[in-house]
């Protein structure tokens, strides 16, 4: 019996020492969190593009905590403790929808349920966007294409949603949100017009956007581009021989001047395409996420701007 008690004691001591070891650090952070701006509206966003929008429209009135960082796939994310704390404390939460965050069984939905956060203050920004569907090569799988935000017009819709959401949760500051959104929307509309004029300047026969993944479906549909892509649905088999062959056939039929590659995908399949077809890869464009702070395309506006610049330069021809 005495043995058992001794054991228990040892175990508890071990526990205590482990706890003590890890206790020293990280205090600051917590203090910061509680001491700082408790009056500001606490906002949680699912990924970088929405984070940027929320900051632009919320301005000084909000604190934005973003969940999925640049370089991480928003489809499959495992929330960390601080993420869930932030989600619990949030006054308003934004996510893209169109299954970008995994849909109804996905991590975002589960997280909201686990935190018993109110779905009424959780806004799906692409709610009113007409979903487009992507199909696998064999035609057996079909899913919603979540990449609507690559289309500036969708960006405009999402911005309006963010604005309305802020006003709904924080009606006292309606004027500020209106004002911030107004400025932001103007810029977005400007970019939209730029997309229109630039693409019109591209010769008809050159208007083919070839990328690795079929992420630019909404964009292409909006502005009248043909789409070439290696894979439609992001799976473990990206760049299979059939996919490569099928794109090569497409390239023969359409002969676009250049190929593009996304910043966040495996470059090898597109390099194979380039070698086989003799068409050069013109440059990188953004798809799932904006650039790291301080780098190219680090805001949604710059991201859209950057994309159209590269696309135009690549396709305008000689």
């Amino acid at each position: 019996m005495r043995n058992k008690l001794a054991l228990l004691l040892v175990a508890v001591l071990v526990a205590m020492s482990l706890v003590a070891c890890s206790n020293g650090e990280k205090k600051e952070e917590v203090i910061n969190k509680e001491g700082e701006n408790s009056e500001k509206l606490q906002v949680v966003t699912s990924f970088t593009i929405i984070e940027d929008m929320a900051k632009e429209i919320g301005g000084d009135l909000v604190d934005v905590y973003n969940l999925v960082p640049t370089g991480t796939d928003p489809h499959e994310y495992s929330p960390l403790p601080n993420d869930i704390k932030a989600a619990t404390d949030a006054d308003v939460l934004f996510y893209n929808g169109l299954n970008l965050e995994g849909g109804e069984h996905g991590w975002f939905a589960k997280m909201i349920d686990a935190t018993s956060q109110d779905w009424a203050v959780t806004y799906e920004l692409a709610e009113d966007i007409e979903p487009m569907f992507i199909t696998s090569e064999d035609g057996k799988e079909e899913e919603i294409n979540p990449h609507a935000f690559l289309d500036p017009v969708v960006g405009i819709e999402m911005t309006k949603k963010v604005r309305d959401a802020f006003i709904e949760v924080d009606p006292d500051n309606e004027a500020t949100y209106e004002e911030n959104a107004e400025i932001y929307l103007e810029k977005l509309i400007e970019i939209h017009e730029q997309y229109q004029t630039f693409i019109e300047k591209i010769p008809e026969e050159n208007r083919t956007l070839v990328t690795s993944e079929r992420a630019y479906q909404y964009l292409a549909a909006r502005y009248g581009l043909r789409e070439g892509y290696i894979w439609a649905i992001d799976t473990e088999e990206n760049g299979s021989p059939e996919q490569i062959k099928s794109l090569l056939t497409f390239l023969e039929e359409t002969s676009p001047p250049v190929l593009f590659i996304e910043t966040n995908v495996d470059k090898r399949p597109m390099e194979t395409i380039s070698r086989e077809s003799g068409i050069e890869i013109f440059g990188e464009i953004f798809s799932d996420e904006i650039g790291n702070p301080g780098e190219e395309g680090d805001t949604y506006l710059k991201y859209l701007q950057y994309n159209i610049d590269v696309i135009y330069q690549g396709l305008k021809g000689k």
């Binding site: 499959e76 495992s78 929330p79 299954n99 349920d113």
Partner: peptide, 13 residues
């Protein structure tokens, strides 16, 4: 998307 959760679990959710 759920596969990740099944493979690695997420006790916080």
């Amino acid at each position: 998307t759920d596969l990740t959760q099944i493979l690695f679990g997420s006790v916080l959710s």
